[in-house]
Nucleic acid binder design. Sequence first.
DNA 1: TATTGTTATACTCTATAACTATA
DNA 2: TATAGTTATAGAGTATAACAATA
Lengths: 149, 149
Amino acid sequence: MSPPRSPGALTPTVLREVSSDLRLACMRISRRVRSESSDTLAPHQFSVLARLEKGALTPRALAELECVSPPSMTRTVSGLVDRGLVDRTDDPEDGRRVILSLTADGTRVLREIRRARDEWMAVRIRRLDPEDQAVLRRASVVLARVAAE
Amino acid sequence: MSPPRSPGALTPTVLREVSSDLRLACMRISRRVRSESSDTLAPHQFSVLARLEKGALTPRALAELECVSPPSMTRTVSGLVDRGLVDRTDDPEDGRRVILSLTADGTRVLREIRRARDEWMAVRIRRLDPEDQAVLRRASVVLARVAAE
DNA sequence: TATTGTTATACTCTATAACTATA
DNA sequence: TATAGTTATAGAGTATAACAATA
């Protein structure tokens, strides 16, 4: 029995080919963006800052979100506090807890890294001819959906 | 003066939006492929195996290609040799040199990792409607070109 | 004397286990 | 007694400096 496939959908062979090409392209672009847009933060530091951007969190919550042990998070956060990118304050309602939040500098660093990364991509899309640009414009919507699932 | 832009090309505003969405989608997909396709190798190990797949290399050449110090490469290679994925033999023409190559097991591991990663992507593309699949089919060609530039 | 590869040593990020302070 | 966070310690990965063997 062959798998169900709506009329007009990719054949199994083409599906395999497209999946492989697309997967490889995403991973290569991702690697090049990271290595060529001169990030000032290590990946785990960037990731923590991005979490805090959506709202203040405790070290424990951050550790769970980032799939890392509490002691590792203590260390990562300490580095960010030392650099003035994260603020650490005691929870007034529970003396055991600590509340972590982004500083203005943290917000600025995050924005600058994103700007540089987006620029890397924009430079390359600007070089394409209008037809290819249109293809990527439509693909960006579909890929964003795939990435978010 | 505004930048040169061929007729039909994306406006600066749309270009920024598409670049940002596409860049983020690529990075998210890349991260999820790495974390959800249960790789049996660390990224630096996979990378070394993929280099050796194209042909045997010396430790020094590998270190340069991977932008890593020779002692680090010694360590990485030792781990792969211990796992039976890489073969280390003396160069018969130059007693100082060592020649590293993939074993049959190394080839098999590499192929299995790629298969699992491609499958992650294929599962998600299969779920899309035919129109979105067609968009990604065309985009895969353009993105592969961008990634390879 | 220059080059290849490895060993010695140190720094970072990760982890688990033990400890302190608070609920 | 349970929980939040940190400190103690150890295991990978990275690096630079020093060393052995060969050209």
